[in-house]
């Protein structure tokens, strides 16, 4: 199928993108078009205007800050995968990126696009949430920063207002003592995850997180993260209480994902 008609305009800068979007519902920002493209081709999404951000230089930089690293929203998954970017973590970002869909998709898909699309099964959505990342948004009313827990409002839903775009993603730095685990269950390599869990243990900063993903809702940070990580809480019990909306069989899978992500953490291995 071919998409319905739309105009595609290229934005040269963040400011230009915001003014091209003009706060209109029918105008949509797009970068790699790897999630939006299929929906356009299927005529399910029918925007009148696409504002393409993929060549916008100011969305493609990396800025090192004392306590974090700022990644331009139009950096591609492959650019993370290939390790050419400064890594705020001890080598975790390339591992996450490598498992997103397929290489040809990773060559075009962007981190900002993935977060803005907010597919609950997406890798960045659950992992960056666990890593305590935030997004810098640019819009008609200026800039603002939102932590990802406030940014994701549901499946495919975010706090982005019409005309607003993600400019950059701020990822806190993690030191050598920090540990990380991520486990996802896919029926087929590269396909949408059926369950996923990301775990962060950063005793240096006193931060612990266990995030449930691919639950067809916004990712949920499980309570008792530290107890889960330290083996003092049962993932089955915590998942049962925290995710009551999941059907029972799906809940069992989520408990397995949680336990396995935690196991990956202690072994220092990620699938």
């Amino acid at each position: 199928m071919k998409p319905g008609r739309f105009d595609l305009v290229l934005a040269g800068s963040c400011g230009e993108a915001v003014s091209l979007l003009g706060g209109r519902e029918e105008a949509k920002p797009v970068a790699g078009s790897q999630s939006l493209g299929p929906m356009l081709n299927l005529r399910l999404a029918r925007p009148a205007v696409l504002v393409d951000l993929s060549t916008c230089a100011e969305l493609r930089g990396v800025t090192e800050e004392a306590d974090s690293v700022l990644y331009g929203a139009a950096l591609t998954h492959a650019e993370f995968e290939d390790g050419g970017l400064v890594d705020a973590t001890p080598g975790w970002l390339p591992q996450i990126a490598r498992r997103i869909a397929y290489r040809a998709v990773r060559n075009r898909g962007t981190v900002g696009g993935s977060l803005a699309h907010a597919d609950p099964a997406a890798d960045w959505v659950v992992t960056l949430r666990a890593l305590g990342a935030s997004v810098l948004l640019a819009g008609p009313e200026g800039e603002r920063e939102l932590a990802l827990d406030a940014f994701f409002t549901g499946a495919l839903a975010t706090a982005l207002k019409p005309g607003e775009i993600i400019r950059a993603v701020r990822v806190p730095r993690r030191g050598a003592s920090a540990r990380w685990g991520y486990w996802k269950f896919c029926r087929k390599l590269g396909e949408f995850a059926k369950a996923s869990a990301a775990v962060l243990a950063d005793p240096g900063r006193g931060e612990f997180a266990v995030v449930a993903g691919a639950i067809e809702r916004a990712p949920v940070a499980l309570p008792e993260a530290q107890a889960l990580i330290e083996g003092r809480a049962d993932p089955r019990v915590v998942v049962e209480e925290a995710l009551p909306f999941l059907p029972p069989e799906r809940r069992a899978l989520q408990a397995t994902a949680t336990a396995r992500a935690i196991a990956a953490l202690s072994e220092g291995e990620n699938e």
Partner: peptide, 19 residues
């Protein structure tokens, strides 16, 4: 291959290929 990298041409729009 676009800019040296394999990509999907069915979800890459011609009008977005500037440069």
């Amino acid at each position: 291959v676009k800019d040296g990298k394999p990509v999907r041409s069915c979800i890459t729009y011609a009008a977005a290929c500037e440069g």
